[in-house]
Design a protein around this nucleic acid. Structure first.
Length: 238
DNA sequence: AACCAGGACGTGA
DNA sequence: TCACGTCATGGT
């Protein structure tokens, strides 16, 4: 399926490098300023370069579950101000303080529990890279979160699937609407070399493309990829 | 003023 | 396995 590669090239050509995963704790950033959205680092593939950055990506991937990034950034910034965006300090933090800090992301009761459970496991890792199965065994870590952690925090070329991916590629007719996560994942991994940069960029590009063309109220048929890659598009577009 | 966001889990069929 | 319901804040 050459088309999986062609779509990647088209997206990259259109939007360029996305600089994922964004970090509030990054050179030049001011972690005390909320809502800045300046953590993207296009073209810099050497991140994370510190343990704190790696941990920040993990916690961010949990906090951003079904939540906009602006709110996630607020929560991360709150934790940073409390000097608690690191494993041991976070475990010492009181429950009410933790919940207050992450409140902007919603689901703060569940997410506090998820973060604690993950951090407890993270500490036992001692710098080792976790397996996908280990991550999935933690309460609150599902497939997308596990893959995000592996791809962006631990630099393992494993493809991340999200709701946007499902929307775009089912619209293009390349998968079924309700296709299983692992089935969609295989579609990408079977048609791409396991290249870390490509995997990181592709997922980020999908999110960017979906934000522009796949908001639930927009007409998906107007998606530029549609015209370009679906051979029977002319038949469908009246 | 509904509707949705870079999901995951629990439950009953 | 499948189809819902629940969790919760902030932006548009």
């Amino acid at each position: 399926m050459q088309i999986i590669q062609q779509i990647y090239k088209a997206l990259y050509k259109e939007y360029g490098p996305q600089g994922w995963w964004p970090l509030i704790d990054y050179k030049g950033n001011n972690p005390t300023k909320t809502g800045s959205i300046k953590g993207y680092h296009p073209g810099d593939y050497n991140l994370p370069e510190t343990q704190n950055q790696r941990f920040e990506i993990c916690i961010g991937s949990i906090l951003t579950q079904n939540t906009g990034w602006v709110n996630t950034e607020r929560a991360l910034t709150n934790l940073k101000k409390l000097h608690s965006l690191a494993p041991t300090p976070l475990m010492i933090l009181q429950d009410d303080e933790l919940k207050l800090a992450i409140k902007p992301t919603g689901y703060f009761n569940q997410k506090a529990k998820k973060i604690r459970g993950f951090t407890e496991f993270y500490i036992t890792l001692n710098d080792r890279t976790p397996t996908r199965e280990e991550l999935l065994s933690i309460w609150g870590i599902g497939k997308e979160t596990a893959d995000s952690i592996l791809l962006y925090a631990f630099k393992i070329p494993t493809f991340v699937i999200d709701a946007y991916t499902r929307r775009i590629f089912s619209n293009l007719g390349l998968i079924e609407k309700n296709a299983e996560y692992d089935k969609i994942k295989s579609l990408f991994e079977n048609n791409l070399k396991p290249n870390l940069i490509v995997y990181q960029e592709y997922h980020a590009l999908i999110v960017e493309h979906a934000k522009r063309h796949y908001s639930k109220k927009t007409e998906h048929i107007l998606c530029p990829l549609y015209q370009k890659f679906v051979k029977w598009a002319n038949f469908l577009i009246i």
